[in-house]
Design a protein around this nucleic acid. Structure first.
Lengths: 199, 199, 199, 199
DNA sequence: CATGAATGAGGATTCATTCAT
DNA sequence: AATGAATGAATCCTCATTCAT
């Protein structure tokens, strides 16, 4: 495999495999699954996976990077709309995270839980992108703070991470119980994060 | 040999091993670690682990059960004190979860993330206890609701799970960055959960 | 498609590939290389090799046969010149083996070291030719012996093989250290074989 | 395997495995054999090999180092006896190389042919020892030269390597045709190297 | 002629587990 | 109570080979 095709066909198939990997990694964990499990979800033999990804770990990296890159793209659309209320923007963030697309959630779950299994170099690549994501959120919070919309007792960076945590946990619930109503969860978590449980 | 000693000594050593296992499982995941990793944290050869636990999976089950049992014991003390304010009770719950004891957090992290690798039967055992834990929290919320302390728009069962989620995420942060200030995290997450971020 | 073209073009390209294979086999060994390594030395994709050789083993056979056939042709020119002195004829043999053509040495190295990986049938084919080569040398030695030029204590067949061994070893040195002076090596090995090291 | 036993038993078994590996590597080449082939020559399952050597490559390194170390020890005994004639010392060197012990030859064959498959670091370790071996021989030749025993036209370092080459080729013959008379081969190669083939 | 895509058959290595001591 | 030695069963990955285009 010295020269990889630049065909759209190759890229398209690669993305399909990436998604299948994301789904398996999310469900069973990186070390809890076999490459065979990934092949099983595709019309593909296990050995053929290696035509698209050199190692299982490379597939994990690709999933993580894809997760964070698409998340950034979606987030950028939300946060740059300053007219919306803070609660609406928070809801937008959570909605963008949970999203209607099943595969998107899988990627993000993998990003959160499995990136620790990446090698040092790969972690750097992911972390760099990840910081970008956090920075976008951070800006949103700082704007809100400047407008006096935030409780001054809140530690902004921590709140950013707590929001991401909440989104991740919600994604997990949706993954494990596909019966759940996405909209309801988004509503509840938004309310919780904005106003808390107290009356 | 199927009958294991009931000596205090045996039980004590077994607990030490359980804790080492919890620490390793929390750090690397059940499938991401080897039994050798557990032995490495103890003055013990890998084969000797099998004197205390029949399988790796049995050790995972033991960790999970230990986690939930001690969590219930701690929770019971908090929730049965109705005089405290709601926020104080919430803070108590989070504090009990995060706790000063490092090993306690590890067990809970394992419970949350790794129990999916238990066999069906083992999951039942853990789930039973887990429900007990949730029920205790649920009661607390319902009491508060009855006293008009809760925002009526809140979906109680979901809030219970969100609280547990938040605790888990906080525990993860503490595990990964041991520099962090436990008290500050408890404060912030309590405030967040009770009052939200809005002014 | 079982019938391959007899075009000059096809034959020429096939020979180029054979030489590339020889070079790779000599450097890494038959089992130590991949067909990809051969393609890497050519403007050719790996799958395309199979247009010229049905299997990797067939390429090895072709290299071995080519080695021994050209070696015989070269040897015949030397040995049939009875006017030269014994030392000159030995030098001629060694020179013909080491030769200026890099590719020629590679083929002979492969012949010596890798033919053991041929299947039984293929080995027969090579061995037949090989015996022819040895016979030519043997004749040369016997002529010399008849003329009283040989030390009578010498075991002729063994000396033949020792000469081939020496040539092979010299070829290896030239392969591994391309800086070396071919002529010097030829001189030294000729002297050694003819007169030994003693004064 | 964090701590390896220092028992004599372990060391002894390890040596047996090393010898089996040497034999297999010599016969089929490092890449031409499977670890299973090694296990087949021992009362041992394939997986058990890994109790003694962490990788196949580590076994190769061990074989190479063992080869060169024992060769040095044997050589030291020969070369330090200056009373013997040059021819006798050469014969001693060849005899020490070919040796009655079958396993010893296998190790040396592997050293000569397979060390190229070692990683860079491993090659360094072997090369260091190897140079020591060459230095011992070189000294012997220089002493002889000082005594006027050598043909002055001889390039000493090249002659050293040629002697080693000859020994290797002789070892190969003995390996492939076990019927051959070791003493005869030693005699012939000694004569060849000392006096050449000419009358 | 050439090659992109795919695959079957291995092969090295890992690892939980066993057991005699 | 502990462990050295051994092993069966996976599992990742490699690679020669095929074939439609």
């Amino acid at each position: 495999m010295p020269i990889k095709p630049t065909t759209g066909k190759f890229t398209k198939r690669r993305l399909e495999i990436l998604m299948a990997a994301a789904s398996v990694f999310a469900e069973k964990g990186f070390h809890g699954c076999r490459t065979q499990d990934i092949a099983d979800r595709l019309e593909l033999r296990q050995a053929s996976l290696y035509y698209y990804f050199p190692t299982k770990e490379a597939a994990l990296e690709a999933v993580c990077l894809h997760a964070v890159e698409t998340a950034i793209a979606r987030l950028a659309q939300i946060t740059e709309n300053p007219s919306a209320s803070l609660a609406d923007r928070i809801r937008g963030v959570i909605h963008a995270y949970l999203h209607d697309l099943h595969a998107h959630r899988d990627c993000l779950i993998v990003l959160a839980e499995q990136r620790r299994y990446l090698s040092g170099d790969q972690q750097q690549a992911v972390r760099a992108q990840s910081r970008h994501y956090q920075a976008l959120l951070q800006q949103m919070f700082e704007q809100a703070a400047a407008q006096g919309l935030l409780d001054p007792a809140i530690d902004c960076p921590l709140a950013v991470r707590a929001l991401i945590d909440l989104c991740h946990c919600a994604a997990l619930r949706l993954q494990r119980d596909t019966q759940q109503d996405v909209t309801h969860i988004i509503d509840q978590y938004t309310r919780l994060f904005c106003s808390g449980i107290e009356h």
